Amino acid sequence: TTTLTYTDEEEARKAAEELKRRGITFTYTKRGGTWEIRIK
């Protein structure tokens, strides 16, 4: 499992869109002031 952490929502959203485009499965979690993208 790879976890990407972002403090900028815009960056996190761009990363999530890129992963979706590649067909990669991930979970997206907001934790306080950070956003976590966990790639399975």
Score class of each variant (00 low, 15 high):
Thr7Gln: 08
Tyr28Ile: 15
Thr7Ser: 09
Glu36Asn: 03
Thr34Trp: 13
Lys20Leu: 13
Glu18Arg: 07
Tyr6Met: 02
Ile37Phe: 03
Arg22Val: 05
Thr25Leu: 14
Thr25Glu: 15
Glu17Ser: 09
Gly23Ser: 03
Thr7Trp: 10
Thr29His: 12
Glu10His: 11
Thr5Gln: 07
Thr1Asp: 13
Glu10Val: 11
Glu18Cys: 10
Thr1Lys: 08
Gly32Gln: 08
Gly23Val: 01
Thr29Ala: 08
Glu9Ser: 04
Gly33Tyr: 07
Ala15Lys: 13
Ile37Met: 02
Trp35His: 04
Phe26Cys: 02
Thr1Val: 13
Leu19Lys: 00
Arg21Gly: 06
Lys40His: 14
Thr29Met: 11
Arg21Glu: 08
Thr3Met: 10
Arg38Lys: 14
Tyr6Val: 01
Glu9Trp: 08
Glu9Pro: 06
Asp8Pro: 01
Arg21Thr: 07
Ile37Val: 03
Thr2Gln: 11
Trp35Asp: 01
Glu11Leu: 08
Asp8Glu: 07
Arg31Trp: 07
Glu36Pro: 00
Lys40Pro: 14
Thr5Glu: 05
Lys14Asp: 05
Leu4Lys: 04
Thr3Val: 15
Thr34Gly: 10
Ile39His: 02
Ile37Trp: 00
Gly32Ala: 08
Ala15Asp: 03
Tyr28Gln: 06
Lys14Pro: 01
Lys30Asp: 11
Leu19His: 01
Ala15Gly: 03
Thr2Gly: 06
Leu19Ser: 00
Thr27Pro: 00
Thr3Trp: 08
Asp8Cys: 08
Glu10Leu: 12
Tyr28Ala: 05
Glu36Lys: 03
Gly32Tyr: 04
Lys14Thr: 08
Glu10Ile: 12
Ile39Glu: 01
Arg21Tyr: 04
Thr27Gln: 07
Arg38Cys: 15
Glu9Lys: 05
Ile24Lys: 03
Lys20Tyr: 09
Gly23Lys: 04
Arg21Asn: 08
Lys30Glu: 13
Glu10Lys: 13
Glu18His: 08
Asp8Tyr: 05
Lys20Met: 13
Leu19Asn: 01
Thr34His: 14
Gly32Ile: 04
Trp35Ile: 14
Ile37His: 00
Glu9Gln: 06
Lys40Asp: 14
Lys40Arg: 11
Glu10Asn: 12
Arg38Met: 13
Glu36Asp: 02
Lys20Asn: 09
Thr2Ser: 09
Thr25Pro: 13
Glu17Arg: 11
